[in-house]
């Protein structure tokens, strides 16, 4: 896609428009620059992602402690909007934890296969699933990586890899800033402050879950806004040029 744009710059606008409209799957000019609409995420997590949601057609890698919880929390809103999500070869998940993050249990599936076969399983799942959370045992080789990214892009799926994955377009590093509630043997875990570092949107602090006493099971992570605003650098905006002239 990048190559064709370079060549077309010199040509006249009519042929440029024709060439661009022939790109598969791209229907509007905005989509050329921003890509397809991202999958929705819960409101408080939206500032973490570069496009305000899970990028479609791309691989997102999440590393650090609490990576799995973050991935599930990011997937939660999409499952509530009838998108199917599959977790492949992750350790056994606690259903109570999934329900607490707000995942719709009717649209969530856990797949257990021999770890060496993960690429085949992922390519089968990519045909119908919009969201995949994978924990590959080892990083794929360059050829495998190319095939995987091509398939993910073609299917407009969103792949979340737990662990470093070269070839991922976005990455988040999740770490624990502090747990509170344990008072040296007299309390219990109540809330956790999570620090999420994203190369483009900067550092965010989220609390998970909400303060106790909330009766709803779907507890959304909250953002402490002040610190987030100061730490985030201005990210480059791509402006759409009106009127190809």
């Amino acid at each position: 896609m990048d190559m064709s744009v370079h060549h077309a710059v010199a040509a006249d606008p009519q042929t440029l428009r024709k060439q661009l409209s022939r790109l598969p799957g791209v229907t509007t000019a905005r989509e050329l620059f921003t890509g397809p609409e991202p999958l929705p995420v819960d409101g408080m997590l939206a500032p973490v992602f570069a496009r305000g949601g899970l990028p479609r057609g791309e691989i997102l890698s999440v590393t650090g402690t609490l990576a799995l919880s973050f991935a599930c929390a990011a997937a939660a809103k999409s499952t509530r909007e009838q998108h199917w999500c599959a977790a492949v070869d992750t350790p056994e998940l606690a259903v109570a934890g999934l329900a607490e993050l707000g995942i719709d249990l009717e649209h969530f599936v856990h797949v257990r296969t021999p770890p060496a076969d993960w690429q085949r399983v992922v390519s089968i799942l990519l045909e119908t699933f919009d969201l995949l959370i994978i924990a590959p045992p080892a990083a794929p080789s360059p050829q495998e990586r190319q095939r995987l990214t091509a398939k993910v892009r073609e299917r407009r799926a969103s792949l979340i890899a737990l662990g470093p994955m070269p070839g991922s377009s976005e990455s988040c590093e999740v770490s624990v800033a502090g747990w509170d509630g344990l008072h040296a043997g007299t309390g219990r875990l109540r809330a956790c402050t999570v620090r999420v570092r994203h190369p483009r949107t900067g550092e965010h602090l989220l609390t998970w879950p909400l303060t106790p006493g909330a009766t709803s099971v779907q507890q959304l992570p909250t953002a402490s806004g002040a610190e987030a605003a100061t730490c985030r650098p201005a990210h480059p905006q791509i402006q759409v040029i009106d009127g190809a002239g």
Binding site: V95, V111, R112, D117
Partner: peptide
């Protein structure tokens, strides 16, 4: 359903599981 049944056919019925409380 078709995709999941295909996976079950390859790896056995226990390979694909759905959660419940």
């Amino acid at each position: 359903t078709h995709t999941l049944e295909r996976l079950q056919g390859l790896y056995g019925p226990e390979a694909v599981r759905v959660p419940q409380l």
